[in-house]
Structures are given as structure tokens and as C-alpha cells.
């Protein structure tokens, strides 16, 4: 009975492996061509030095000089400043957004809430609007010329808000991101809250625990995995900040520069045809984000075990 099974199992396993790879092949091929090859290509390109002749009469030449672009990057005050700006953005915006998302999820989950479906949907609806389209919409709400917010404030209280001023503009961008993503994060946390066993909450209540106490000591610890996940994704999201500031840039009156964020800076270099330098910036950004993701991944996995 067992012998024939054993004899055929090797062949069956080989056949199964072949079908598995056939199923994987189309995806794997495109993944290779659209992810790994471009990344490798960018690394190679970043090792070359682009030289334009003084008058721009002859074609620019490329020479192999691996340290050139990366050295230039270290001394590029605009690029360094853009990195610092994105870090500041993440440190402030991510806790505010996730705190708000957690707070709203707990409120909707609480026994006092009515119309739970409506509030969930209201918070989630901004996520349905593409990032750049919501940035276009907010640009009208911010613009000194068109802002209905400032119109109303001017009429009621006699002052306006300088959304595009140098000190405000980063937080105007943060507001657009918070508006768009709070509901998404809230839904993830809320779904996780639904898995907290009713019995545990009922037992705590019978012991006289207040709703705040239950939220703090039972619900929040139990949704920790969801909080960690949303934190990781939000931090990665901050590092790739591009759409919102890029849309506001031409309307900001100069407070958003062409190198406001690292990605904007790299894109501007590519648009100016400084391909090797743009490649170096892209490689540095990708490496930083990759290290960031993997570090968080490791830390959170270790914390769990």
C-alpha cells in the first residue's frame, strides 16, 4: 500500500514544483524587470560623473567616478534639509494622526456611540479621494486668493490664516495627510478592536472598571499589533512624502521649494536631466526607507516573542 506512494512521490513533487514555478513565473518576471532591474540600473548610473562642457556646445560626457555623486550629496544643504524636514514631519504628524485614529476608534467602539456606521464612513471617505486630488482641493481652501476658510474668518473675526507662510506650510501639508489617512488607520484599529473578547470586557465592567480604565488597560494592549502596523506604514508614508507638497508647490509663493522633500529633490534633479545625481538621491532614499522598514520590522517582531 505504501510502496507505490513512495515511488511516485518524488515524481509528483517534482511535477508540483514545476507547476508552482509556472504559476509564479509571469509575476516573478515582471517583478524582476520592474523592481530589481531599475534599482540595479539606478545604482550603476549613480556611480558615473556627468560632465557638461562649459558652453554646452558639445554633448555631456559620462565618466566612472563612484564617489562623486555621493560626495556631492553629503554637501548638498538642500537635500540634507529636506531629510530633516521629513523627519520633523514624521515625528509630529504620525503620533497626532494615530492618536486621533485610536481615539476615534475607541469612541466609535464605546457603548455611548450611536450611528457607528455613519461615523466610520465619514472618517473613511477622505481615503477614497486620490491624494493629489485632495491636495488640489485643499490648495483652494488654503490659497490666499480663494480660501473660503479665510473669507469666513475675515468676515466673522477680521483676520486670516497664513497657510502658505514659511512657518505654517509644513503643517498645512500635515493637515492634508492627516485628513486623508486618519480614517484608514482608524478602520484598521477598529477592526482589531472587534476581536477583543466580549467576556473580558464584561468581566472588567462587573468588577467596576470605568470605560476609560477598560480602554487603557484592556483594549489598547489588545490592539497593539494593529497600532504597530499602522505606525510602521505611517512612518514609511512620511519618508515618501511627495504628492501633497508637490501639488501645493506652484501655489505656495515660494515657501515650498523644489527640494522640499527628498523625493521632490530627486525628481527635480531628474527633470533637470542630472540623471546620475538623481539616481544617487533615489538610491539613498530607497536605502534609508529600506533600513527604516526592516529595523522596525525586526524590533516589533522581537518585542512579540
Amino acid at each position: 500500500m505504501t510502496t507505490p506512494t513512495l515511488r511516485t512521490s518524488g515524481g509528483a513533487r517534482r511535477r508540483a514544483a514545476r507547476s508552482a514555478w509556472l504559476f509564479l513565473l509571469p509575476f516573478a518576471l515582471l517583478f524582476l524587470l520592474m523592481y530589481l532591474v531599475p534599482l540595479g540600473f539606478a545604482v550603476v548610473q549613480s556611480l558615473f560623473k556627468l560632465q557638461r562642457s562649459g558652453l554646452g556646445l558639445s554633448a555631456p560626457t559620462l565618466s566612472f567616478d563612484p564617489g562623486f555623486n555621493y560626495g556631492r550629496l553629503l554637501g548638498d544643504a538642500d537635500f540634507i534639509a529636506s531629510l530633516g524636514r521629513v523627519v520633523l514631519f514624521g515625528v509630529v504628524q504620525v503620533p497626532i494622526m494615530l492618536g486621533l485614529a485610536l481615539f476615534l476608534a475607541l469612541l466609535i467602539d464605546s457603548r455611548s456611540a450611536k450611528l457607528k456606521g455613519f461615523y466610520r464612513l465619514a472618517a473613511f471617505l477622505p481615503y477614497a479621494v486620490p491624494g493629489v486630488i485632495s491636495a488640489v482641493m485643499w490648495s483652494f481652501l488654503y490659497s490666499p486668493v480663494t480660501s473660503p476658510v479665510n473669507n469666513a474668518l475675515q468676515e466673522a473675526f477680521g483676520f486670516t490664516l497664513p497657510f502658505f507662510s514659511d512657518s505654517w506650510v509644513l503643517w498645512s501639508v500635515a493637515n492634508i495627510v492627516t485628513w486623508g489617512w486618519t480614517g484608514y488607520n482608524m478602520l484598521i484599529i477598529y477592526s482589531s478592536l472587534q476581536t477583543v473578547p466580549t467576556e473580558v470586557i464584561e468581566a472588567a465592567r462587573l468588577d467596576g472598571a470605568s470605560s476609560w480604565r477598560i480602554a487603557w488597560s484592556i483594549k489598547i494592549p489588545m490592539v497593539r499589533p494593529a497600532l504597530i502596523l499602522t505606525t510602521i506604514f505611517s512612518i514609511i508614508g512620511s519618508a515618501q512624502l511627495y504628492n501633497e507638497p508637490a501639488v501645493l508647490q506652484p501655489l505656495s509663493g515660494g515657501s515650498i521649494t523644489k527640494s522640499f522633500t527628498p523625493l521632490m529633490s530627486a525628481q527635480a534633479q531628474a527633470a533637470a536631466q542630472n540623471y546620475p545625481y538623481a539616481a544617487a538621491q533615489a538610491v539613498v532614499i530607497a536605502v534609508l526607507v529600506g533600513v527604516l522598514s526592516i529595523t522596525f520590522f525586526k524590533i516589533t517582531n522581537r518585542g512579540d516573542k
Binding site: F41, A42, I236, Q267, A270, Y275, A282, G290, S293
Partner: peptide, 16 residues
């Protein structure tokens, strides 16, 4: 690849 956002690959794609 899920953890590294697609935008990071956009510039290399453009160069390619």
C-alpha cells in the same frame, strides 16, 4: 517589496 513603497522605485523606473 510590500514594505518598501512603490514610489521608491519610480525614479529608477524613469531612468530605465
Amino acid at each position: 517589496a510590500v514594505l518598501i513603497p512603490k514610489v521608491m522605485f519610480t525614479l529608477p523606473l524613469f531612468l530605465m
